[in-house]
Each structure stands twice: as structure tokens, then as C-alpha cells.
Write a protein that binds this DNA or RNA. Structure first.
Length: 563
RNA sequence: GUUCCCGUGGCGAAAUAGGAUAUCGCAAUCGCCUCCUAAGCGAUAGGCUGUGGGUUCGAUUCCCGCCGGGAACGCCA
């Protein structure tokens, strides 16, 4: 890969060192300005001259060569035109040489990243509120893997808490095994809701629930068995969703797993003198850091969320020795993460700095917040089913002879759903709307997939041309340049996505690439009378297809060859 | 009340760790399939980037105030 910035920096005779120079060199806002630009404004102060004058002087002194073919001073910018055919071929050949793995690197070699994502709750339905953590976490998993990191995907199950005592009471009173097996989480959910309806009028239920929860903790066989049953029913159902989304985990150690692993961390915090008594509870005071205290032990002696998260973080550090541990959890829990990260830092865990809360925005419905208890939820399964069914209808209409029709519809529908959680900055709130998620036009996964299929179609239909070499002058035009430059920025986008924990960096670039390709496609016929031109253009198509596919893979979205 | 986040054309967003004329999609109107997939492409219309200051050669981007929206703030997770 030719480093034009470096070439320019080496040849520029400005009173700054090479590193500063190349840091200042940027890509131009518009191809008509050139390809790279050096803003002279910072030099103005040092050199005591106007930026316009500096640019002109630098331009006059700059000696062009085979790589940098033209220099222009415009409004205080020094604009460089590179050898565009060289740039084009440089990028295209890199992509082709990468054989489908363009953008991969070994920057993470020997490093481990833990990613805590999706983390479903037992006995609760999987609704669209869980889509963001699942899609973002899974995409980060793939992105970090592509960068050579060893990645550990963790589904930190919500499988501990007094609600399971309630579930047992409800199940014994109103439920039965056969129905639960048949109806799955829906039935568990119904029992849970019923418990809350009955509880105000039957205070003894609360007491029974507490008792059953205590029995789970003691390892009472009946309680344990029922609890495992709920867990099995929930996971069975959730796993069918994960299968459809192609989401994988390396660990399913949830809250209950850490139940017997909290004593040591607590003792450690006590030994360090961090824990104090407050209103009967044991807390770590964080007033010095502008935060309310972090509660670790309730006045009845039982543990809390933060206690388990601290134990889990320590356990993960010991077992995986991570270089980074990401928590893909909604921003509602900002304070919680800040608190327990700080507690670990105060405890002298220098690795506390490697814990990252990857926060994302809330999903709400058009008529307000979702509520499991009120039954006001949109199930993810229903959304996927609708999307797939719509994809099916469109295929029936546009491409009825397509092979593997249902498979393609599945990939398109699922892709559309996943993309909705990956297209924007994760911090943005989302108001769920069927209209939006079922729209397959414009900036959507089906658009990317369609563009990929278009590329593929050309590659397949192009007649073989033996003994002819490509004429790359066929690539000397605005549409190709724009497309190729975008493709060339893909590796950096992958790194940025990892650095910022932001898969949307990749989604946004893919949209730009697809758009640039479609404009290229309209403007320049690939399969044409001139075999030399055809060969050159086919390589652009090949590279586009390759990058679109790789990008979609990193987002966890399928790329059917035809649609 | 305190802390944090968000505020860009009717709607949804982008702007590479301050840079050149604020970019894209949806919706709207009008065009383009005897020609590589029209899930596409083009054109028109739509903006004082919430607001008032400040820093800077330059602010959507950084700082302060205000307004509007959201979230969190002790025995849930």
C-alpha cells in the first residue's frame, strides 16, 4: 500500500518535523480539490506569514514526481493530486490480494478481549430491547477477531435473584410442566405477570417466594430442579433466535455462576478498608469521586448486582487475563458501571482501566416505554418473522425463479433487523417502528446485499477474455475514483470501529461504498465490447464485492450471492 | 435537587479526535428498465446545525450560560 501522506510529508519543506507534518495532512473534502491537502494555517503563526502566502511558497518549492503529480495552493491549503491510476490499482490489487479478508490485521495478536453482551434474563422474553446489545456485541466480536484479537464472548445470564422464588411459587400454583414445555417463555412470562397481579391481595405469596429463593440458594433439589427447568426452557427458545442471528458465545456464565465467588472479593475490599457500614448495609463510599456510595451487601446480608459484577470482573481477569473487557449494556446503567469500575480501581486493580462500558441508547415504542410486566413488548422473533416474510414477498415479485428463495429471504430479513441496530451511533435512542425496520430501500442491509448481488451478477456473466491485459485508463473517471477511495478506507474503518466500539463506522462506510458502486454501475458498463476495459472494470467490481461481503460479515449480516 | 447523555431540512441520521460549498437516506414532486438485477439511478424542493456568549485564522465539533428531550441517583437487575 502506497503511503501518499508519507511521501508528501517527506518532500514538504516546512519547519515542522515529519511526524507533525504527516499528522496535519488530510484527505481532501472533494476530489476536485485533489487527493490530499496540507492546511497551512498552523504554520502562519510560526512563520509569521499569511497561510495563503505560505501555501503558495510551498507549492512553488514542491517538486512533483510519479506519485504526486500536481500541487496547487488554494485559500491557504496546499492541495496534492496523486497519480490516480496508480492509487486506484494500488487499492484494487490490495483488496484482491487479501482474498476476502481486506481490512484484517494482526494488531491484536496475543491480546484478549472479553465482550459481555446480550446477557438474557431467564424467564423473560427476548424482545427488541435486547437487539442492540446482541447485534453490537456480536459485531464487535467479529471486528476484534478480524483484527487478530483473541475474543471471548460472554452471555452473562440474568439467572439469579428473588424473582426466581416468585416464579417457583407461581409455577406450583398455576402452572404445569407440559404447558411450559409447549408454550415456552410466553407461559413463564404469564405466570410471572399473574404472580404480580395476585401478590397485593395475597401477602403470603411474597413470603413463600422468599422461602423458595432461599431454597434455590441452599441447593434444595426440588427448587434447583425447577430453576434449571426454567433456565432450560428459556435458553432453548433464546438459542433459536441466536441461531437465526448467527450470534455465538464462548461462555454462558451468568449471575448464579458467581454466587459462590463473592466472599473473596468482599474480604479483599474489607481488608483494604474500603467497605463501611451505612444504614445497616455495607458500602464503598464514592463521594470523593462525585458518586453515590456503591452498595455491596444488603442489610439482610445478601449480595447485590454490583457485588456480582465485581466478582465476575475479577474472575474474568484471572481466567482470561483480558487486555480489555467490554460491557455492552444500555446507558441506563452508566452509574452502576462507573461505580464498580471505581471500586476495583480503589482496590488497587490496575486493570480496572481496561473495563469499558459500551453504552447504547434506549429502545422505546411509539406509544412509550416497553414493559414486560404490562405485556407491552415487541418480540424480536415477531420482528424477524415479519422482515423475512416481507423479503419473501419481494423476491416472489421481483425474482420468482431464484434458487434457495427461503434461505435468501431469511438472510435479507434478518440482515434488515440486525442493521437497524448497527446503522447509527449506538448512543442514540431508537423509537421502534415496523415501518422503518421493514423498509428495504435506501440505507439498509437489503441495499447492501442487493449491491453485492449486483456485483456478483456481473462477475458471473462476464465472458472470459483470454490473452488480453486490462486497460486501466478505463478507470480514470470520477465515479471509479470515488468508489476506490472509499474501498481503500475500509481497513481504517475497521480499526476505528474497534477503537470506538462503534460498528456503525463500518455500516456507514458500506452504505457509501454501495452508493458509489451503484453510481459507477450506471455510469460505466462493465461487460462491454472492449475486453481491455472490461478486465479493468471487472477488477473494480471484484474488489467492491469482496469488501461489501467482508463488511457485512463483520456486522454479522449475510451476503447472498443472488437476490 | 445533583450528575450524565442527546438536540443538525417534515422524519431518521453523517461529518475522519476544530478545517474548504454541512453530507446521506426516508417521505414528497418529476424523470429513467428493447442494454451487466429498478431492493437501483438522476432531478426538484426542503437548513441562521435549539439558543446566547466565549476561545480560534476557522466551530456542527471545544468552553460557559440558558431552553427543550432522555437517563440515573441506597438495600431490583
Amino acid at each position: 500500500m502506497i503511503d501518499y501522506k508519507q511521501i508528501i510529508a517527506d518532500k514538504l519543506s516546512a519547519p515542522l518535523d515529519k511526524a507533525e507534518l504527516s499528522a496535519l495532512i488530510t484527505e481532501t473534502a472533494d476530489d476536485s480539490f485533489g487527493d490530499y491537502a496540507f492546511p497551512c494555517f498552523k504554520l502562519a503563526r510560526v512563520m509569521r506569514k499569511s497561510p495563503v502566502q505560505i501555501a503558495e511558497e510551498l507549492a512553488a518549492k514542491f517538486v512533483t514526481d510519479d506519485h504526486i503529480v500536481k500541487v496547487q495552493a488554494v485559500n491557504g491549503y496546499l492541495n496534492f493530486f496523486v497519480n490516480r491510476l496508480e492509487l486506484t490499482w494500488d487499492i484494487i490489487s490490495d483488496v484482491i490480494a487479501a482474498r476476502g479478508r481486506y481490512g484484517d490485521s494482526d494488531m491484536g495478536k496475543g491480546k484478549t478481549v472479553c465482550i459481555d453482551y446480550s446477557s438474557v434474563n431467564i424467564c423473560k422474553s427476548f424482545h427488541i430491547g435486547h437487539l442492540s446489545t446482541t447485534a453490537i456485541g456480536s459485531a464487535l466480536y467479529k471486528i476484534y477477531s478480524a483484527l487478530g484479537y483473541n475474543v471471548v464472548g460472554i452471555n452473562h445470564l440474568g439467572d439469579y435473584g428473588t424473582q426466581f422464588g416468585k416464579m417457583i411459587v407461581a409455577f406450583k400454583l398455576w402452572g404445569d410442566q407440559a404447558t411450559a414445555e409447549k408454550e415456552g417463555v410466553k407461559e413463564l412470562q404469564r405466570l410471572y405477570v399473574k404472580f404480580h397481579q395476585e401478590e397485593p391481595n395475597h401477602p403470603e405469596l411474597t413470603e413463600q417466594a422468599r422461602e423458595w429463593f432461599a431454597r434455590i440458594e441452599r441447593g434444595d433439589p426440588e427448587a434447583q430442579q425447577l430453576f434449571e427447568f426454567f433456565k432450560r426452557v428459556t435458553l432453548q427458545e433464546v438459542k433459536t433466535i441466536y441461531d437465526r442471528l448467527h450470534v455465538r458465545f464462548d461462555s454462558w456464565n451468568g449471575e448464579s455462576f458467581f454466587n459462590d465467588k463473592m466472599a473473596e472479593p468482599l474480604q479483599m475490599l474489607r481488608d483494604k478498608g474500603l467497605i463501611t457500614e451505612s444504614q445497616g448495609a455495607q458500602v464503598v463510599e464514592l463521594g470523593d469521586y462525585g458518586m453515590p456510595p456503591c452498595l455491596l451487601v444488603k442489610s439482610d446480608g445478601s449480595s447485590l448486582y454490583a457485588t456480582r459484577d465485581i466478582a465476575a470482573a475479577i474472575w474474568r481477569k484471572q481466567h482470561y487475563n483480558f487486555d480489555k473487557c467490554l460491557y455492552v449494556v444500555a446507558y441506563q446503567q452508566n452509574l452502576h458501571f462507573k461505580q464498580f469500575f471505581k471500586v476495583l480501581e480503589l482496590a488497587g486493580c490496575d486493570w480496572a482501566k481496561d473495563l469499558v462500558h459500551v453504552a447504547y441508547g434506549m429502545v422505546s415504542l411509539e406509544d412509550g416505554a416497553m414493559s414486560t410486566r404490562k405485556g407491552n413488548v415487541v418480540l424480536l422473533k415477531d420482528v424477524i418473522d415479519k422482515a423475512v416474510s416481507k423479503a419473501n414477498d419481494i423476491i416472489a415479485d421481483k425474482n420468482p425463479d431464484l434458487d434457495n428463495r427461503s434461505d435468501v429471504a431469511e438472510q435479507v430479513g434478518v440482515g434488515a433487523v440486525l442493521f437497524s441496530a448497527l446503522e447509527n451511533s449506538r448512543i442514540k435512542d431508537i423509537v421502534f417502528s415496523y415501518d422503518r425496520i421493514l423498509n428495504f430501500d435506501g440505507e439498509t442491509a437489503p441495499y447492501l446485499q442487493y449491491t453485492y448481488a449486483r456485483c456478483n451478477s456481473i462477475l458471473q456473466k462476464a465472458p472470459r477474455t483470454e490473452g488480453v491485459s486490462g486497460d486501466y485508463r478505463a478507470l480514470d473517471n470520477a465515479e471509479t475514483l470515488r468508489l476506490v477511495k472509499l474501498i481503500g478506507s475500509f481497513p481504517q474503518a475497521v480499526r476505528d470501529a474497534a477503537l470506538k466500539y462503534e460498528p456503525s463506522v463500518i455500516s456507514a462506510l458500506l452504505i457509501d461504498i454501495a452508493q458509489a458502486f451503484n453510481r459507477f454501475y450506471i455510469a460505466h458498463r462493465v461487460i462491454c465490447d472492449n475486453p481491455a476495459h472490461q478486465i479493468a472494470r471487472l477488477q473494480v467490481v471484484d474488489a467492491t464485492a469482496s469488501v461489501l461481503k467482508r463488511g457485512l460479515q463483520l456486522l454479522g449480516i449475510g451476503a447472498p450471492p443472488q437476490m
